[in-house]
């Protein structure tokens, strides 16, 4: 094995080493200071609780994953459409932007009780909260990507007789893709947080609801196990968004190598 390849593997292992080190130090601190279970459980206790309640945790995780993904998918669809409209037309931009800023300033926690009044306890408030909270970053990024198209590039196309729609399709949209995927990496965890938030208030299923139940029973280890699973799911979702981004907008990541760069025909 060459030195370079060895260093590459070392780099890939690094995040796992950091995570393992955190758990090791945590375990050590809890044991050596004799911190009680119901204040801060040791990782070993958390893993044990996680294993013991694995069926319940899995069940609730899948529920949260589902509400997150549905809310997120809605946010992507509406964020893209609204972003394209707002980014393509300064008229639409001027008309809608102030209202959107105002809407975004409202803490979504304040909306959840309203959602409960309208839709009752259950899946719908979680989906809608995930949607509401992750919609805005997608919209803003897509709109920015399209609106910041270089005037000269626009002129090149306009001079050829391109319509505004053609300019958006050939330049605006492909140009907005890196912004779009960057926003997905923000919106994905945020949607997740939205779902859990709604579940702690307005659900009897989901990771948020599970955490609420666990803390009410002073089962702090279980609450931590749920947190851990939440973190893992967040990482997995981020990783998926990242992978997608690399495939679609490889051109914007000017890698050190001249390897094959995938590019959409737009």
């Amino acid at each position: 094995m060459t030195n370079k390849a060895r260093r590459g593997i070392g780099r890939r292992l690094l995040p796992w080493i950091v995570i393992a080190a955190i758990f090791a130090i945590w375990e050590l601190v809890v044991r050596s200071f004799g911190i009680p279970q119901f204040v801060l459980p040791a990782p070993s206790a958390i893993f044990a609780a996680g294993w013991k309640f694995r069926v319940g945790i899995l069940d609730n995780s899948l529920q949260t994953l589902m509400t997150t993904l549905i809310g997120f998918a809605l946010a992507v669809a509406f964020g893209l459409i609204a972003g394209i409209m707002i980014g393509s037309s300064s008229l639409v931009y001027e008309a809608f932007y102030p209202a959107l800023i105002g809407f975004n300033a409202i803490p979504k926690v304040a909306i959840v009780p309203l959602l409960v009044i309208w839709f009752g306890i259950g899946t719908v408030p979680a989906v809608l909260t995930a949607f509401l909270i992750s919609f805005f970053p997608i919209l803003v990024n897509v709109a920015t990507g399209i609106a910041t198209t270089e005037p000269e590039l626009r002129d090149v196309l306009r001079a050829l007789g391109a319509s505004p729609a053609q300019i958006v399709r050939k330049v605006g949209l492909p140009r907005a893709m890196p912004y779009f995927f960057a926003s997905l990496k923000i919106a994905m965890p945020v949607a997740f947080v939205g779902s859990i938030l709604a579940e702690t208030v307005a659900a009897n299923k989901g990771i948020g609801s599970l955490m609420l139940v666990a803390t009410a029973r002073f089962d702090v280890a279980l609450a931590f196990a749920a947190l851990l699973v939440t973190g893992l799911m967040g990482m997995a979702l981020y990783w998926i968004a990242n992978l997608l981004e690399r495939r679609v907008t490889g051109w914007s990541i000017r890698g050190a190598s001249d390897a094959v760069v995938l590019h959409p025909q737009g």
Partner: peptide, 17 residues
């Protein structure tokens, strides 16, 4: 705009993707 015109500017203005 007329389609029998071609233009070029100081920036290359190529589509990077």
């Amino acid at each position: 705009p007329l389609d029998f015109v071609g233009m070029a500017f100081q920036n290359p203005n190529l589509l990077p993707w």
